[in-house]
Design a protein around this nucleic acid. Sequence first.
DNA 1: GTTTAAATCGAAAACGTTTTCGATTAATAA
DNA 2: TTATTAATCGAAAACGTTTTCGATTTAAAC
Lengths: 343, 343
Amino acid sequence: MKPVTLKQIAEELNISVTTVSKALKDYPDVSKKTKGLVKELAKTLNYKPNTFAVNLRTKESKTIGLIIPVIVHHFFSNVIKGIVSQAEKKGYLVIILQSNESYELEKKQIDLLLSQRVDGILISLANGTANFNHINNVIAQEKPLVMFDKIAKIVKCSKVIIDDRKAAYTATLHLINIGCKRIAHFRGALLPQNSIDRFLGYKKALLDNGLPYDPSLVYICECGERSFEEGKKNAKQLLIDHNDVDGIFINTDLVAIGAMTEFNSQGVKIPDDINIVGFSNWFMSSVISPSLTTINQPGYKMGKAAFKQLYKEIKATKNKKIITPKTITLETELIKRDSTKDN
Amino acid sequence: MKPVTLKQIAEELNISVTTVSKALKDYPDVSKKTKGLVKELAKTLNYKPNTFAVNLRTKESKTIGLIIPVIVHHFFSNVIKGIVSQAEKKGYLVIILQSNESYELEKKQIDLLLSQRVDGILISLANGTANFNHINNVIAQEKPLVMFDKIAKIVKCSKVIIDDRKAAYTATLHLINIGCKRIAHFRGALLPQNSIDRFLGYKKALLDNGLPYDPSLVYICECGERSFEEGKKNAKQLLIDHNDVDGIFINTDLVAIGAMTEFNSQGVKIPDDINIVGFSNWFMSSVISPSLTTINQPGYKMGKAAFKQLYKEIKATKNKKIITPKTITLETELIKRDSTKDN
DNA sequence: GTTTAAATCGAAAACGTTTTCGATTAATAA
DNA sequence: TTATTAATCGAAAACGTTTTCGATTTAAAC
């Protein structure tokens, strides 16, 4: 019941292991006849090359690692799907690790993947990550690495992102265009680049359009496991702090839905009393009532693009070519629904 | 910039590769002194054993494969999270593949994982899978395999499931208890065991409680990508076919939410005109309005349990022990919310 | 001083593949 | 005929580790 090896095929046909190997890989220095014999026998014996040996010899595993802050997440699970499907097409397998937004875990997982000798790494940074030595370490080893979504601008590597600032600008502008004068923002955690950028886009849209920027209108949420509750809490606090807010741009749909739930239960009408724009376009957002105006964030596309870039870099590295980091920016779009007024 | 090997450490210390290897693994036949020297040098050189070589030697990869019908799915992504986190604890990595509910793909992916020589396989069957040769093939090779959620009763292997029939019975009974007399069922696809079981539980609850079973009240949906739309469509059809239905037990939350959307838009009041019970307890279900009564399906726990069982079997196989298949049934619970009347 | 036991080490084989390079044979050209 | 080329093959090294088993040295026992 042991797996078939080249040796067994060789002995059966009274030829050498070398020839068997070469026959299976269509080397030109094997006759058609032997190729035929070898391939036939390999098929009937159901020969499968021993990946361990192949890996050892070729020094590649045809495997990539993926580190992601959360798995149970509409956007990220779409990214995973994009990566896995694209990788499979190119004959690569994907090892998935969840960093749980923890820098320490992320560091360990990088080590784990390196010691596993994956051919490349795809990563979306944890909220807790402020030090990038572990990432730079990977790059220094000339192991291809591509960041997506939650990136660090400071790190010299390829990135696949959306233009968070622009998207946030668009979202806020929409609120302004429908007549909002006091626009609040529920922002994400402090460290991640994308929550910074969304905040900056929000701020710029205000200033560009003659509205004052008021820091007391900006609320923070960690956007972790308890996003929904954070949304409710912030909404409750907002109602206490201010009575004149007529629009909110919220960092994530799930937080927005939490906020909407709170507003609903307090009798605050959406969009009549307050207009809300979320971010990400979770499936849920189209289904709740009122449906949520939001920014579509293309997770599946991002996963595909990230793998494609990584694949290029793996090939390049193999051919000893130098890779110049590339930043790919994917398009987003505003999806108008019922949580904001028609204008 | 090449990775450090045992050989380099050996040369540096003027000892043999054998001794270095043994020192690092704390063999008793290496002196304390050499152990100290070796370990110290290994650390300063940042030695990491070459996994490829270790795999080849030990014939194990410390890697398992996971085949799952869909990744972007609240329940399944929770399962993934459970598996990945548990596996990491035991030093195992997880390769994820999505079968897309396709038998053909599933078959190919099994082959892929076998040729990758994973130490074990975790699988939830595709809807399209009616033939189990590919699975039996794995078992015949004495490669540990555990099925979860979408299983095949006929296959002799360990399984982690919920008692779908019982859960469906409970759900239907709840509808009966609050006074429903004409209870419809939106069932899942025809092949999967769990959609069959949920249907049977529904039917049994009716008959046990003196209600007639009426096949015209059973609607089918594939529960694939378009679940939401299927829910709407079935709801619309139901309103055309019957005007006396006062309760529906629906195979999946997402379908239920689709149905509720349709009822809402047609002015059918939930739960006054019609009571609805879903299945799975997606996060969304607690957030929509009215919130959805449903059966909680413990995805994270299932993932953990599935890996634990697989781990046991991997260990057992390694020690040449025979493994007797085990079926683990996880508890479910009815979560009463606003889509069903109080009684 | 000899025997025995314990402690410490290393040579070598093995895992299964890939690839280089030299050897052999057959076919062609001179 | 011999020289040259093309076609076909295989020996052997290499990838880096683990593990068996025998060798050597040292200490203890007689």
